[in-house]
């Protein structure tokens, strides 16, 4: 028999999965709207295809393969679809988005037994599958349509990665991006990465609604800041500075919405902090020393695999015993 390992809200709260997931969708909306404003109708198409196909595949699999009542009403497929869509470049063709949705829902979620059983974050599995399968499309970023002159075809992180390989000082690259513009509108990158402020807004909303606890996210930010501070302090020509690392790439999206996924993150606070530190450290190692410019998704997936161990190790104390 399978024992469902799930965090607190499932046990003792009045909240249902559905209301929690609806809150996540609301929290993601500002960033989604921002990305549509910046990138235009093609971004809207990617998001719509992603959400619709995730829900569609979940319905098909539960009804036709598992012969059960479908679980699409719990909104979790909508969240997966939205996150997947926000992790892809807006130039992704519609059929590619559908393959990503099939991998996310079919392989990463339903094969393991559906919501609550999956080891890895479905949206990230879908995204990494596409990244590995179609690297040319997935790593060719086009700048937002509203910045015609910023039409660089590369993200701040990929330019830095190239500079490191070329041996040119990274400060030449980082000086091109002001922190203010990165906070408001990242230059190039996937949709969900574009507006850090909108993402943080959603994160604050989730924390205020007590949908998520902030520990995981905060420990990721702290670890990324600390790790990059140390390396930047050692050699500022080779390594990028903490603020750049916090604001660039998919770090905010990943830390706020993907790492905090209920099913695939540890249950206890201590476990969550260790989980966050692991993600932050791995992200920085991949960014500094890896061949991929961005490592947040890989870092989260790797730490996902450790969650059962962390849950065992940091077991919550039973009531009545200190």
């Amino acid at each position: 028999m399978n024992i469902l390992v799930s965090p607190n809200p499932h046990i003792h709260s009045k909240w249902s999965t559905r209301s929690l997931m609806t809150d996540v969708v609301i929290a993601l909306l500002p960033a989604a709207i921002c990305s549509v404003v910046f990138y235009g109708w093609r971004e809207a198409l990617v998001l719509a295809v992603s959400v619709l196909s995730c829900v569609g595949f979940e319905w098909l699999i539960t009804r036709c393969l598992m012969k059960q009542r479908s679980t699409i009403c719990d909104m979790s497929a909508v969240v997966t679809g939205l996150l997947l869509g926000m992790n892809l470049p807006f130039t992704t063709p519609w059929w590619m988005v559908m393959i990503g949705a099939l991998v996310a829902i079919g392989i990463a979620k339903m094969t393991f037994g559906g919501l609550g059983q999956n080891v890895f974050n479905p949206a990230l599995v879908g995204r990494v599958f596409l990244l590995v399968s179609f690297p040319a499309v997935m790593t060719t970023w086009v700048g937002p349509v509203h910045f015609a002159d910023a039409f660089t075809g590369s993200t701040p992180l990929s330019s830095v990665n190239e500079a490191i390989l070329n041996g040119t000082p990274v400060t030449e690259i980082t000086s091109q991006y002001s922190y203010g513009s990165m906070l408001l509108a990242n230059l190039g990158g996937s949709a969900g990465e574009i507006c850090a402020l909108a993402l943080l807004l959603g994160f604050v909303y989730l924390c205020v609604r007590k949908v998520i606890k902030p520990w995981i996210t905060l420990s990721i930010f702290a670890t990324v800041a600390l790790t990059s501070l140390i390396f930047w302090g050692i050699d500022s020509a080779r390594f990028t500075d903490p603020a750049f690392n916090l604001l660039s790439g998919g770090l905010i999206l990943g830390a706020c919405f993907m790492a905090t996924d209920y099913v695939t993150s540890p249950m206890s606070t201590l476990g969550g902090i260790i989980f966050g530190v692991g993600i932050g450290f791995l992200t920085m190692m991949i960014r500094y020393f890896g061949s991929y410019p961005e490592g947040v998704s890989f870092a989260i997936l790797i730490m996902n695999a450790f969650v059962p161990l962390l849950n065992r190790w940091c077991k919550q104390k039973k009531f009545g015993r200190a």
Partner: peptide, 9 residues
């Protein structure tokens, strides 16, 4: 080669 700067170099 597209998206393979390292190999090309």
């Amino acid at each position: 080669i597209t998206a393979s700067t390292i190999t090309s170099k």
